[in-house]
């Protein structure tokens, strides 16, 4: 009961922050609101017992990416440029995307239901983790051992992003002189 109340309160606050992000015109305020959004999201993940995801969301979403946004704002401008195009096409695109997402939601299993296929036919990692790997935190054993290929792929994605940013943004030698 109390968990449902907290979840609903957090979701309402998320909705309010989202409206704020859309409405606000100053980009500085938008970046701060995005950080607030991530922090609320992280709290919601804790309520849903997904502590690992909450930690990632708080560190990446609310922490580091806010700094990156601020760095980008410092290099560009803090006021959104007025759009010269019409508003019809973006509105249509947003409505179509939202419609597709809501349509997709109807196919999801009921929230928290133990009858989902993933709980009935999925691999029984909860039982296997301790005897096979000796790791009590099943999230870690799934990420780093059973699904190690995926995590190698994720690390490679981070690596690729890193060298991409370095290639694009790093100051080249002699750039500052001329």
């Amino acid at each position: 009961m109390i968990e449902t109340t907290i979840t609903i309160a957090l979701l309402l606050m998320l909705a309010a922050v989202t409206v704020g992000i859309v409405r606000v015109r100053g980009l500085f305020a938008a970046v701060v609101l995005l950080g607030v959004y991530s922090l609320l999201m992280a709290t919601l993940f804790i309520v849903l017992d997904a502590v690992d995801v909450a930690m990632t969301e708080a560190a990446v979403g609310a922490g580091v990416s806010t700094v990156f946004f601020l760095g980008a704002l410092y290099l560009t401008d803090t006021v959104e440029a007025p759009s010269s195009r019409g508003r019809f096409l973006p509105l249509l695109l947003a409505l179509v995307t939202a419609g597709a997402l809501v349509w997709g939601l109807s196919d999801l299993p009921e929230f928290g239901s133990p009858e989902q296929p993933i709980h009935k036919q999925g691999a029984d990692y909860l039982a296997r983790s301790i005897p096979e790997t000796g790791i009590p935190n099943v999230v870690t054993s799934v990420l780093a051992s059973y699904r190690s290929f995926d995590t190698l792929g994720e690390t490679t994605v981070v690596f690729t992003a890193g060298i991409g940013i370095l290639a694009l943004l790093r100051r080249r030698r002699g750039e500052g002189r001329n």
């Binding site: 990156f68 980008a72 410092y74 690390t155 992003a161 940013i165 943004l169």
Partner: peptide, 20 residues
């Protein structure tokens, strides 16, 4: 390995933004 790549990538992105 994950720690090394993730932390150094984040710091490198920060340097890249702050250095311009």
């Amino acid at each position: 390995g994950v720690f090394m790549t993730v932390s150094s990538t984040m710091i490198a992105i920060f340097y890249a933004f702050a250095g311009r």
